[in-house]
């Protein structure tokens, strides 16, 4: 089976972000980058499929400047077989434009299954996978938490709010991966060494038209400093009031 995984390089989400002077990006100074979480799960799922079958090939594809090669190498060190960088230096926030470039690369690859993360954890747009499927004319199942591929049929489970669905579709297909399906493995040093020798092709990205433009980034209102509401159970009514009116979680 031939599998493709689309991955995105994103900054580490644990730090506090600062907005860059341009106002449309984050200040990248001191940030570390890694594969978007859901894309990591997708790569893991694809690698596990080939490992289990003892056959098949996983291609990882990422769009971006040359630094994405580092992220592609990480996927290779996890066990992907080859990588493609669609080179494009400026940041793109339009999912359709990105999907156009990815679909152009995927179109003639003869892939049975294309996997993406459910969303990129930076832009949180959730559009790329679905657009790729539409552009390629393939069926798609989004945000799945379980997957099996058997006899040319994909069977999947999707978590809903307080419920779940079982879904199936024929191959070739596109799926987007939610959490809970597999944790991205921690690459072994052996894997890292092997990845250095695996093929990584660089091609120009053929982006689609941009119709969704990021105008501005802002930091949400600072979290107010914590406070002691009171002592003992007498403080409960005030706490409930704050949860309701201030935090709006009740």
């Amino acid at each position: 089976m031939k599998l493709a995984v689309c991955i995105k390089r994103v900054p580490d989400m644990e730090g506090r972000f600062k907005i860059a002077a341009s106002g449309t990006g984050i200040d990248e100074a001191g940030l570390k980058y890694d594969m978007s979480d859901f894309d990591g799960y997708a790569a893991e799922v694809a690698i596990q499929i080939t490992e289990k079958a003892g056959a098949g090939e996983v291609t990882v594809i990422s769009l971006g400047p040359d630094v994405v090669q580092e992220t592609l190498r990480k996927a290779l060190s996890m066990g992907a077989h080859r990588a493609v960088q669609l080179k494009h230096d400026a940041p793109v926030s339009d999912g359709f434009a990105v999907a156009t470039a990815l679909a152009a690369e995927l179109k003639d690859g003869g892939y049975d299954l294309i996997l993406c993360g459910r969303m990129a954890v930076d832009t949180q747009n959730r559009s790329t996978g679905v657009f790729i499927a539409e552009l390629l004319g393939l069926p798609i199942i989004t945000a799945i938490s379980q997957l099996s591929v058997d006899g040319g049929v994909v069977k999947a489970r999707r978590e809903l709010e307080g419920a779940y669905e079982l879904i199936e579709c024929p191959l070739p297909a596109v799926v987007t991966i939610d959490e809970g399906i597999a944790r991205a493995r921690y690459p072994s040093l052996k894997g890292i060494m092997a990845a250095k020798k695996k093929p990584l092709d660089v091609k120009p990205a053929q982006l689609g038209a941009i119709t969704y433009q990021l105008e501005k980034m802002e930091l949400p209102a600072e979290r107010a400093a914590g406070r002691i509401v009171g002592e003992g159970k007498d403080a409960v009514p005030e706490l409930v009031r704050l949860l309701k009116e201030e935090a709006k979680v009740l």
Binding site: I26, K216, E218
Partner: peptide
């Protein structure tokens, strides 16, 4: 929201 809800993104 973006960046695990740490940033508000404004689009047109």
């Amino acid at each position: 929201p973006g960046y695990t809800n740490k940033i508000v993104q404004r689009f047109v």
